[in-house]
């Protein structure tokens, strides 16, 4: 009776009595799985992530992580938001040091500063620790946020369109970096990190994920749950060039189109009736 690592059971979320954002979502994620979530804007994929993070509470249903019900935010789940989750008044290093302090890692301030620097070098920012987030490019800020998420060594990573605001080349590089870091961690004695990765980019979802979950909107629900049959370890290039990639992409695009069409349908009918 091994229960799934992350279990979302019949979760419903709404603002007020009318606006149902998520309707009866059930979703199981195994430990060490990398799950991509795609869907049209407004389908509640970010809301689902916020439920997992414990930032909001479901109206009905339950969320458990590692058999523990989620009652609020916790340092066992590191969150990376789209608009860089760093405090602008602290340097990159201070941002990570604060997170380490909260996670109870590192005995002294000096030790925490060293750990922080180590993770900054891991994402190629060894020389930028003393800079403020505002002095960095969007890509560098996002790498800092990822470094912080990795530094606190949370078993679960929740990423909400972390590369959504980046230009294409920067985004491609970040995807490779994330793949490298995550796959690198999988070999270690403790099973790798479980990642819940929200994106609106179909290719990104395939390149990164073991599974792609397609969500539909109004109300938000799970429409498809597709296993990504690409070998690991991957890079962005090996994924895109794999013979299965085009069919996976086309399949997901078709699914997404269906979801969007369905959403557009009612107003068109109403228009025809006039």
């Amino acid at each position: 009776m091994t229960s799934p690592y992350i279990a979302v059971n019949g979760v419903t979320f709404r603002y007020g009595p009318e606006q149902t954002i998520l309707d009866n979502i059930t979703l199981n994620i195994e430990k060490g799985e990398f799950v991509s979530v795609i869907g049209p804007s407004g389908c509640g994929k970010s809301t689902l992530l916020r439920l997992l993070a414990g930032l909001i509470k479901p109206v009905a249903g339950s969320v458990t992580v590692s058999s523990q019900p989620v009652t609020g935010p916790g340092l066992d789940r590191a969150v990376v938001f789209q608009d860089y989750s760093l405090f602008p008044w602290m340097t990159c290093q201070e941002n990570i040091v604060l997170a380490l302090e909260r996670a109870g890692l590192g005995k002294t301030k000096t030790e925490r500063r060293e750990i922080a620097l180590g993770f900054l070098s891991l994402v190629g920012l060894a020389l930028d620790g003393n800079k403020l987030p505002g002095e960095l490019s969007g890509g560098m800020r996002q790498r800092t946020a990822i470094a912080r998420a990795l530094a606190i060594n949370a078993p679960t990573l929740l990423m909400d369109e972390p590369f959504g605001a980046l230009d294409e080349i920067t985004r491609a590089r970040q995807q490779d970096l994330l793949l490298e870091l995550w796959q690198g961690g999988q070999g270690e004695k403790e099973a790798g990190k479980t990642v819940f990765f929200v994106t609106h980019d179909v290719e990104e979802a395939i390149i990164l994920g073991d599974r792609v979950i397609v969500m539909g909107s109004q109300p938000g629900r799970v429409v498809k749950d597709l296993a990504v049959t690409l070998p690991r370890p991957r890079t962005r290039m090996t994924s895109i060039q794999h013979k299965n990639f085009p069919s996976l992409r086309d399949y997901l695009l078709t699914e997404l189109n269906l979801v969007v069409d369905e959403r557009l349908a009612p107003p068109i009918e109403a228009g025809a009736a006039i």
Partner: peptide
Amino acid sequence: RWIDNAKCLNLTGRRLVFKV
């Protein structure tokens, strides 16, 4: 987003006030 960030780091009380 600062508030969310602070919540995710479990910042409360004095720390929340002085850091955020």
